[in-house]
Design a protein around this nucleic acid. Structure first.
Lengths: 229, 229
DNA sequence: CCAAAAGTGTTGTTAGTACACCCATGG
DNA sequence: CCATGGGTGTACTAACAACACTTTTGG
């Protein structure tokens, strides 16, 4: 392949906005950069795309390096290619977001990071490169998706209560929701299963536990069940 | 910028699905390729991204070369980066669609094309590279956008009738719509202006002409007025 | 028995859907 | 006067929004 040489020198990267949820807040996994440029600044985890690697694979690799997780909800959002976005040359980056269940999850700083941490979206101020814009774009996309597809379950543990589900929606959408209307709507869709189990050891009436019903879920994600809340 | 050299040889391109509408059908502008690979096959118009060119600029350039048009509705849709998608090397392509009003428009075959033509979407069978998949993805995106944003006007001439608008929605969404309900919905949104003008020279009762009201339109596009039809 | 969160129905309002006839023009 | 598409209203149904009290548990 000669024409890229003749053309110009450039690179592709993938940046991944990894969302997690912890009972009340929506969080993003950030790394502290260990390399120039922007050493010591917080940034989104990302990597150059390998020669024999599809874009989705690359996003999955980043996710696995940091969290050990595979087969997680992953969505390509937008490609950022402003000429000056990388101070050292032309780097076009494809942004993805992923949704992970953070229960029992200990992220580890991979090779390209000095440090790693979950940060509440409302606490993120500035990030390296144009990563703040990338994060904002991915958040907006997540909000849109959540309104029309039942992907919220991806952020929750296997067993969850309806209140947890509602808090998740409230955290992502940044709104308050009516408890009764929320439950009415959720139960009308057929995607959750009542496990006939209850919370234990809580100082109040224990909540029923639910899991989501994969059978209905798949088609609901495809066909975009309206989940306007 | 050294690391791209050390890394691997690759190129970025942009492919543009240019949609037009001609009273009854949704069309896409296709070119007949004048270069290897796939010489003589029909393909989407596309180009390599120039060193000092943003992605959106690149998509605009393709559009201007072929149609002479500028300041047209243009939307980035998805980036395709399968390792084997280009037989001569690694080329990652960013797909855009644009919406153009085809009245008084004569597209010209630019340098990279031997021939150019509007093709009805239902008549497109196979295309070079993975362009059929790209086209299908962009069509799906257009359909989604059209349901929630009033972007259909971009495909129509300045003055249009409500029946033309309805036929456009039917062509894009591939459904039939009820005339009275359609009109009710359109008039509830504040984005079109009655010009108090009528069609001339038609062998039936002449239809009123409308144009869209840019003042309301801008915010409706931003905020995503529900235009579910 | 107190604190804390779980759970549960009804009513009014709004948007959606289905449907059929008369009107204005050119030929 | 005929053919063609333009234009209009109503009744039924389904979804949405607002709202307050009783239940179950741990401490």
């Amino acid at each position: 392949m000669s024409f890229s040489y003749e053309y110009f020198k450039s690179a592709f990267s993938v940046d991944n906005v990894i969302f997690g949820f912890d009972k009340t807040d929506l969080n993003v996994l950030l790394i502290k950069r260990g390399e120039e440029p922007f050493v010591g600044d917080w940034a989104l985890p990302g990597a150059l795309v390998l020669p024999d690697e599809d874009l989705d694979e690359s996003a999955n690799r980043i996710l696995k390096d940091l969290t050990g997780l595979e087969n997680v909800y992953l969505k390509q959002v937008h490609t950022f290619g402003a000429v000056e976005r990388h101070p050292k040359g032309r780097v076009i980056t494809v942004a993805y977001f992923s949704l992970v269940n953070t229960t029992d999850l200990k992220p580890v700083a991979a090779s390209f990071a000095k440090e790693i941490k979950w940060t509440r979206i409302q606490d993120i101020d500035s990030l390296a490169f144009d990563h703040h814009k990338i994060m904002a774009t991915c958040l907006k996309k997540l909000q849109e998706e959540l309104r029309f597809k039942p992907i919220g379950f991806e952020l929750l543990p296997e067993k969850f209560t309806l209140t947890e589900l509602q808090q998740l929606y409230e955290a992502v959408l940044g709104t308050e929701l009516d408890k009764r209307n929320f439950r009415k709507k959720v139960s009308k869709m057929k995607i959750i299963k009542d496990l006939n189990l209850y919370q234990e050891g809580v100082a109040h009436r224990p909540a029923r536990l639910y899991s989501f019903d994969e059978e209905y879920y798949e088609e609901a994600v495809e066909n975009g069940v309206t989940f306007e809340l």
